[in-house]
Design a protein around this nucleic acid. Structure first.
Length: 960
RNA sequence: GCCGGGUUGGCGGAAUGGCAGACGCUGAUGUCUCAAACACAUCUGUCCGAAAGGACGUGCGGGUUCGAAUCCCGCACCCGGCACCA
């Protein structure tokens, strides 16, 4: 503790001064009081949390944080920034006539908890629960007004019972594209049974539902279910020993967690058909009050692009490509398929066509050999390597030729890893003149380049002289006609429309919309996650457990560690920890058709599952019959004026969840909405991203971080143990030795000071560096506030019954007005500045502060520093908590000043200041301004060309 | 490369077309004190000046306007996101 810390100052002279010791005492007492009284309990309209109908009748506010992941490291001061902000806002809303739901749960399944458990040798449940307890006590110390009755952790079986239940809802539904919503799978089966919907068979044939075996029916339904298992190329991360969703793989092809290489591997995994919702996920963004940056990230992630599908015949098959530029069809000179494209095997001939170019064969004796070799080579590449080599195009000729449907030209068909199986159809027509990638490939493989747009940059139409592709949208199309259609001379948009129409008429293509978004890979080879409520019968058909068997609890096991591998070894495959427990895996169950033997699914759900719907469980956390009671859900989440899709009123959290949690949660909401379980089609109406609290990192000459708390500053240089160190702004954390914990700040100044400091540092959405030395400023504010109301020697309040003077009333009401607007707009920093200004003003009347000023002052402070406000409110003689008092309302008569300062400018430069009435007229003000001696002097007798008057604040004179 | 956000005193920041620097930190001086700390008071953008006062000033260059930190155009730098997506 530093000697200059006023919070630690001697108490001898002033036994009732607001010190750290007093703050700690006050805060502990009020925290106990709030817990005992249930001060923050928000009443539901019905059920076990029902309460005062008068409060239920108020407008509701559901104010939420992104719930924390309880790590072993504990909190640093950066973590609670958002929690404090939502708490201040929730308190303000409570004081302005709202029924406020504000609570906090814990997101506790997932990789980090499991890794921590493996490292420490404790079971993840043990370590996670102790972390939660630790975090709960750290958060309680901050005085957050949470309704603790509504808190839970995602690892509670009573919670994940419903996570599993939602999985079953998704598993047991399909997307009806005509109705544009999800429907129960039973309704699809009914359509198949009655013949209302044809049962699709292989190659476009149809079958009779009644003639199918159970396994065949399961296969058919698997093509429709919104949760389905499939064999597909997935992101396999040997270093973590699990597969990952696309959203969990970084741009450079590594795992977001652990930074290990990720490989493509074909594995049977569970997926969620989020792609069915691509359009709605995109369209509904419009109505949400979210930061534009986040909306944009979601739009980019969904990646809608309009174009056409076109069929290219090859050897009795059709290669279907997706293109956004069907207008360039005449420029296609070859085709490329993704190496793993299923058609490749069908048309690859036994021998190379005559006189096949050596560059094309890759030196292999047969096409089959060449294809196999290229596939092996491409498969062994991690995404990191693939992207690093992006400029050097590789590939191999398949030996087959396709026909360009617009001009009958023979196009050699290649496979190359620059075409991705997961996007579009996994096949492209290559137009080297217009696309840089195709151009690079064409040059590498000596393929022709046909010019189909008139270059506008003077390069000419001889493509042999080109150094790069020419893809301008503004150019004119040339060389693009056949007997039936001509695009020559048309601008791009028109050419697209004309050729698409022609393709459709000929039945060889159609306009289509393609999305970048892919289905969500939903299974992980982990122990610490929700088990799937799925078993397999002897045919290997997946069967859903009935609701009565939920929750399917994680078995207590000895060995929960994941099987990990050499991070660079692609020739590995995942092993699920749960599969090691034969007793648990092999069960005899009665699923309605008598006891039978089954094998349990041994994958677990990804850690996102629990956070996909937790806002709903806060509403009705103890309901054992339903996920959430519909009436309670409608009360807190339902659509209303300005919120057509309903949702949480304010959701605060970090921007890093832009396309992970926030997209998944929206998807689950929409499914539950479609199935009629909830009334809100969007989970979060208003989203706000708080900035990060940064901290200085000090490094010695070897680049190793040194303890920031022990660094000394001398003349702008920094020294640690006598050695000069460098300073950079970075993240706060243990590894960088610059973590400051809320516990130490609470001990040194109290939680109210910490809350004020975090809110006063700057705008909530901006990152800013922590500065422990500056915390004292907010402590001084509270100390002055205390001293303005309480006698430091006696502890008695010093307020008087006197009428406040006019000037003080104006200061008070201006502060009330400003603070109200600032709190409402989440501008906590300027709200605190206004409180400070008022409080500083009141130090003049210390010892005789009128009660009519002191009381609203305490109420103004209450959302920001609730403990000291409760204490002062009690000292002022009130017996009820300050939490439910009405926030002061400004009297407009006092919000305007008695006189205002008007500036008089000449050519925009201030030359004089006048004290005038706020109601002065333009004419009067102009007269006064022109008569002012300083103005007359500054004008030096020059004539006046123009006078701009903005009464009562400004006059600007333009001399002739 | 593409997209988004930003750049204001010694520091965090305020002002979103009308007094640049609210509020806080830091620093200086004074009052109180035996002394210090705390508290209180005054000052604290730069330059010139003893002062009064004046000039300059919101990343850089231009523009619009009676008036620009704020709007427009161009540039530099910083931060974030996306990227072989056909």
């Amino acid at each position: 503790m530093s000697e200059t810390n006023p919070a630690a100052a001697s108490e001898v002279a002033a036994p009732h001064r607001y010190t750290a010791a007093m703050a700690v005492d006050i805060e502990a007492r009020w925290q106990d009081f709030w817990d005992a009284e249930g001060t923050y309990a928000a009443p539901n309209p019905k059920g076990d949390l029902a309460g005062d109908p008068a409060i239920v009748a108020r407008p509701k506010k559901f104010i939420m944080d992104m719930f924390p992941y309880p790590s072993g490291a504990g909190l640093h001061v950066g973590h609670p920034l958002g929690y404090i902000a939502t708490d201040v806002f929730a308190r303000f809303q409570r004081m302005t006539g709202h029924n406020v739901l504000h609570t906090l749960g814990f997101d506790a399944f997932g990789l980090p908890a499991e890794q921590y458990a493996v490292q420490t040798g404790t079971h993840p449940r043990v370590s996670t629960e102790s972390n939660i307890q630790n975090m709960k006590s750290q958060l309680r110390r901050l005085g957050l007004g949470h309704d603790r009755r509504r808190s839970f952790a995602t690892i509670d079986p009573e919670y994940y019972k419903w996570t599993q239940w939602i999985f079953l809802q998704i598993f047991n539904s399909w997307y009806d594209t005509e109705a544009d919503r999800a429907r129960p799978i039973a309704e699809l089966i009914a359509q198949f049974e009655t013949g209302e919907r044809a049962v699709p068979g292989a190659d476009g044939t149809t079958r009779a539902w009644q003639e199918l075996s159970g396994a065949e029916r399961a296969d058919v339904l698997g093509e429709y279910r919104l949760a389905y298992a499939s064999d597909a190329p997935v992101n396999w991360c040997p270093g973590l020993g699990t597969v990952l969703a696309n959203e969990e793989v970084t741009a450079d092809g590594r795992s977001e967690r652990g930074n290990f290489p990720v490989f493509k591997a074909k594995l049977r995994q569970w997926n969620m058909r989020i792609t069915s919702y691509a359009d709605r996920l995109l369209d509904d963004l419009t109505e949400l009050d979210w930061p534009e940056a986040i909306k944009l990230q979601q739009r980019n992630w969904i990646g809608r692009s309009e174009g056409a599908r076109v069929d290219f015949p090859v050897d009795g098959e059709n290669i279907t490509v997706f293109t956004t530029r069907p207008d360039t069809l005449f420029g296609a000179t070859y085709m490329v398929l993704a190496p793993e494209h299923p058609l490749v095997d069908k048309f690859t001939p036994a021998a190379w066509p005559q006189s096949t170019h050596d560059v094309w064969t890759g030196g292999h004796a047969t096409p089959t050999e060449a294809v196999a070799a290229y596939r092996a080579q491409a498969g062994a590449k991690s995404d990191v390597e693939r992207q690093a080599e992006a400029k050097d195009k590789t590939g191999v000729f398949t030996g087959a030729f396709a026909t360009n449907p617009v001009n009958g030209e023979r196009l050699p068909v290649f496979i190359a890893d620059y075409v991705l199986m997961g996007y579009g159809t996994g096949a492209i027509m290559a137009v080297p003149a217009g696309d840089q990638r195709d151009f690079d490939f064409a040059r590498a493989f000596e393929l022709p380049i046909t010019c189909i747009v008139e270059p506008t940059d003077g390069r000419g139409t001889d493509t042999s002289t080109w150094e790069n592709a020419f893809g301008s949208y503004d150019a004119k199309i040339i060389n693009s006609s056949n007997d039936e259609v001509s695009l020559d001379g048309l601008p791009v948009a028109e050419a697209k429309a004309r050729i698409t129409e022609w393709l459709a008429r000929k039945g060889i293509g159609q306009g289509t919309v393609n999305f970048r978004l892919r289905d969500w890979l939903f299974s992980r080879q982990r122990y610490w996650g929700e088990p799937f409520p799925i078993v397999y019968d002897e045919d290997g058909t997946a069967r859903a457990l009935p609701e009565s068997m939920l929750p399917l609890e994680l078995p207590e096991v000895e060995d929960y560690s994941p099987r990990t591998f050499d991070p660079d070894d692609a020739n590995t495959s995942p092993e699920t920890p749960l599969s090691r427990n034969a007793d648990w895996v092999n069960v005899t169950l009665d699923l309605g058709d008598g006891p039978k033997k089954y094998r349990r699914e041994t994958n677990t759900m990804p850690n996102w599952a629990g956070s996909c719907w937790y806002e709903l469980r806060y509403l009705d956390p103890h309901n054992s019959e339903q996920l959430v009671d519909p009436e309670i859900e409608r009360y807190w989440m339902g659509p209303r004026e300005g919120q057509p899709h309903g949702g949480v009123d304010l959701y605060v959290g970090g921007a890093e969840h832009a396309v992970l949690h926030l997209l998944y949660a929206r998807f689950w909401s929409k499914v539950l909405f479609d199935l009629g379980h909830i009334s809100s089609a969007e989970p979060f109406h208003k989203l706000y991203n708080q900035g990060m609290i940064q901290a200085f990192v000090y490094r010695d000459s070897r680049g190793i971080a040194v303890p920031a708390a022990e660094v000394e500053e001398r003349d702008g240089e920094y020294y640690y143990a006598g050695e000069k160190v460098s300073r950079l702004l970075g993240k706060m954390g243990k590894s960088l030795k610059n973590a400051v914990t809320p516990d130490e700040i609470c001990a040194e100044y109290g939680a109210d000071t910490l809350r004020l400091y975090e809110m006063a540092m700057g705008p909530l959405d901006v990152s800013r560096p922590w500065d422990t030395r500056a915390v004292v400023g907010q402590f001084r504010l509270l100390q002055r506030l205390w001293r303005n109301i309480v006698d430091e020697a006696t502890g008695e309040i010093t307020v008087t019954g006197a009428e406040p003077d006019e000037e003080t009333l104006r200061a008070l009401h201006k502060a009330i007005d400003g603070v109200r607007h600032d709190l409402d707009g989440l501008r906590f920093n300027t709200a605190i500045a206004k409180v400070t200004e008022l409080n500083n003003h009141l130090t003049k009347s210390r010892g005789s502060l009128p009660r009519a000023i002191a009381e609203p002052l305490v109420l103004l402070v209450a959302p920001l520093a609730p403990h000291i406000a409760e204490e002062l409110w009690r000292l002022l003689g009130h017996t009820e908590s300050v939490v439910h008092q009405d926030f002061p309302v400004a009297d407009p008569a006092y919000v305007v000043d008695e006189s205002v300062t008007c500036v008089v400018q000449i050519r925009g430069k201030v030359k004089a200041r006048l004290e005038v009435s706020p109601s002065i007229s333009d004419e009067e003000l102009e007269k006064v301004a022109l008569a002012d001696e300083k103005v007359v002097a500054a004008l030096e007798g020059a004539g006046i060309r123009k006078v701009i008057v903005r009464a009562p604040k400004l006059v600007n004179i333009v001399p002739a």
